[in-house]
Design a protein around this nucleic acid. Structure first.
Lengths: 241, 241
DNA sequence: GTGTGTGAACTTGTTCACAGCG
DNA sequence: CGCTGTGAACAAGTTCACACAC
């Protein structure tokens, strides 16, 4: 409270709240589906019901981009898509490197809709000699240790880790050393990276745990068959590749 | 203050805030890693630095489970894991069905650490005759249309959709009709389900978009600001809005 | 001393309700 | 009219700071 918060948010860049940022891509997707079905104009009400949120929230979110709606009519879908793209920084290319070309890494590398959003899968890495050299959608799999050299040619922005947990930290270290500033980690492994590196976990197990909580809560009061099965801690911590 | 906190991890349903729920599995994972490395007691400070959050937040979160820490010492890791398991509803079995046995579905079905958390992959579904009948880790792939019959035998709790976008809605409808109350959707498709069904999207493209935003913002203003770390991936939540 | 547990202050996010524009 | 945009009220979540238990 003694601290004065000196710097005013500049009039130049609007500050988009974090919560809004996570919703923008969702609106994006809905808008694209609407466009494909021939709809060109959309109301906050419709967007809201598709996104399963409150209509006021949609309007607040979109108003942060600027006043792009038309009162009485709604928003122009195509125009909105452009604006969101710009805000999310999707009007430039983002070179992506994927480490760990197992089932999951392969699925992601092949996944369409990456290129559609300016994410270029530029490098695929593994350590298995049987996999190195293989082509996945025109990108050749190279050895993990080549990362520094690759990073020298292309400034890699985002790293995706789909390796077994046991090597995930080493991969993360290499990525950080090669200039990667954002890491998406699919390995079931807690990673340590410098504080200025953006780190996100995508962990299906965590997703399921959160879901089970809500479902348990919903069933909660009715049936009180609480099983006292307390599992011990010898977990298989397997590499879901 | 005068409030004596007696024993009572009461049958009274403690209401755990949503934000806390999403962090509990993260603590869980860290605790398990600590245990394996031989640590039995952990401070909120250490947990916090691994989870990249504030120590006060860790203490608040954990205190919601009950007063399980020891002042001056910290928390007992093994005991804490048990408590979190119980709170998350992981002390019972959760039958999971996966629809769409392509690269991703296969990777998920094989993923260890599901069973480790009481998530049983009970059914695998597809529509491709070439895939039906195949075994993936001892579970036979069956036809999508068999879902109602399977659900009759086992009350499926969680459905995972890893199909192409074009059939995702149909799969979701079938799952809902078969009693599935939580759906995890990997297909790049906006789904409509009844409001009481918990729906979460896991969408790498959305993840990357959010990352690109923060990275773009960082590059934009050469400044101080701390980067928010976003951990879990849920985008939309059903029920209780 | 050390580190938890927690009221209280503060920040962020959500919803309401309505003015105002097309 | 209908629907956006937004201040103001409200709710949720976070951080601080310190009493207190070990």
């Amino acid at each position: 409270m003694s601290n004065l918060r000196a710097v005013a948010p500049g009039p130049t860049t609007r500050r988009i709240p974090e919560a809004t940022v996570t919703r923008l891509p969702v609106y994006q997707r809905i808008l694209e589906e609407l466009l494909r079905s021939g709809t060109t104009t959309v109301s906050s009400e419709l967007l809201a019901s598709s996104a399963r949120v409150n209509a006021a929230k949609v309007r607040k979110d979109l108003s942060l981009l600027g006043s792009f709606g038309t009162r009485g009519a709604g928003y122009d879908a195509a125009f909105l898509i452009e604006q969101i793209d710009r805000q999310l920084g999707l009007d430039r290319e983002w070179p992506v490197v994927i480490a760990g070309i197992g089932n999951l890494g392969r699925a992601l590398a092949r996944s369409q809709g990456f290129a559609a959003r300016n994410f270029n899968v530029t490098a695929l890495l593994d350590t298995d000699p049987a996999i190195i050299g293989e082509r996945v959608d025109d990108v050749v799999v190279r050895h993990l240790d080549d990362l520094p050299y690759i990073a020298n040619e292309v400034p890699l922005a985002i790293g995706v880790i789909t390796t077994p947990a046991s090597v995930a930290q080493r991969v993360a270290d290499l990525m950080v050393a090669s200039g990667v500033r954002s890491i998406l980690n699919f390995a079931p492994q807690v990673l340590e990276v410098p504080p200025d590196v953006l780190l996100r976990y995508v962990d299906l197990s965590i997703e399921l745990q959160v879901m089970s909580f809500y479902q348990a809560r919903r069933m909660g009061s009715a049936g009180d068959d609480r099983m006292p099965v307390i599992r011990s801690v010898g977990l298989t911590r397997g590499a879901s590749d």
